[in-house]
Structures are given as C-alpha cells and as structure tokens.
C-alpha cells in the first residue's frame, strides 16, 4: 500500500523529464504527469506487480496520444518535418536542434527513442509500454535515429557535444 504510493512518488522526477521531452512544453508536460499520477493512484487495484515504472510510462504515453488526438492538429508533424533548416549556430543551437529534430519524428518513434536513451528502459519494457512486439520497437528506434541524423546532416554538421 504505502510502498505503491512511495514508488509512484519516486517516479515523478523521471516522468516529468520524459513528458517534457515528449511534448517540448513544460505546462503540457506537467499536466500530463499530474493526470498520469491521478490515474495511477485511482487504478492501483489494477496494478498486479511487475515494473511500476513501465506501467506509469504506459499511462503517460497513452494520455499523450489522447491529447494529440484531441488537439487534432494534423499539420503539426508534417509542417516541421519538411525542410526546416536549422539556424546558424549559436552556443545553444545544439539543444534547439535536437529539440527540433525530435519534434520532426513520428510520435511513436520519438517515444521509443526517449524511453531508451533518456529513461533507460530496456527494449522489452518499451515494447510493453507501446503494446507492440520488440521488432517494432527496434525498427522505430532505427528509424528515429536515422531521421535525426538526416535532419541534422541536411543542414549543419552533426551535434557538437560529442563527448
């Protein structure tokens, strides 16, 4: 009981990080997280063990899909996708470029990439979150990475912050 709530609370920072990267909007992101928490607490009886973290990411991912549907802003992705030439570099251009490159991805691809590299989920966990086979996760991951590469290559040299 208390353990469940504690684990949910402990996940909030990571959920906020994921939501922010997913939506690129702090307010929308925090609304999504709040909605996720409310649902998780309400559905505690539906949670039969397993990875709590994956479960929370699943709720958040689904809520975000609903949100996009509700907004029904169809040109959003296509518009940014076509040929957004990133702008001449300033010191922060790297951060903005990766933001735009992420924005140009299809939602499922962006979600896979973020869950893997930002949230550190395993491929199997990502497959659970998205409700797809692992092969689909791998192809989404590959497509996301190639598209970001194309996006960044098309316009300027690759990111500078290679460590």
């Amino acid at each position: 009981m208390g353990g469940f709530r504690q684990s949910v609370a402990a996940s909030v920072p990571a959920l906020r990080r994921y939501a922010r990267a997913l939506t690129r909007d702090a307010e929308v992101a925090d609304d999504l997280v709040q909605d996720t928490l409310v649902r998780a607490l309400r559905s505690e009886h539906l949670f039969h063990g397993g990875e709590l973290r994956s479960w929370l990411y699943t709720i958040l991912t689904n809520l975000n899909r609903n949100r996009l549907r509700a907004l029904a802003r169809r040109p959003a992705m296509a518009a940014i996708e076509d040929n957004d030439a990133p702008d001449l570099a300033g010191p922060e251009a790297g951060g903005r470029d990766i933001e735009r490159a992420l924005a140009a991805l299809a939602d499922d691809q962006r979600s896979v990439l973020l869950l893997v590299v930002l949230e550190g989920l395993s491929y199997r966990e990502v497959a659970e979150v998205q409700g797809v086979p692992i092969g689909t996760v791998m192809s989404r991951l590959a497509r996301a990475r190639m598209q970001i590469k194309d996006y960044l290559d098309g316009n300027r040299p690759p990111l500078r912050r290679v460590k």
């Binding site: 906020r16 990080r17 925090d30 709040q34 990766i98 933001e99 290679v162």
Partner: peptide, 23 residues
C-alpha cells in the same frame, strides 16, 4: 551516441528539479 548525449544534455536536468507541490 551524439544524439543520445544531446538528448540527455537537453532534458536530463529536469529530473533533478525540485518536484512542484502540485505533484
């Protein structure tokens, strides 16, 4: 790898922010 670094550099710090009271 550079992409992953850039993503973490851009968003990683959010998880260290103080969690607002609303949560």
């Amino acid at each position: 790898r550079a992409q992953a670094d850039a993503i973490r550099a851009r968003y990683g710090a959010i998880a260290s922010e103080t969690v607002p009271e609303r949560f």
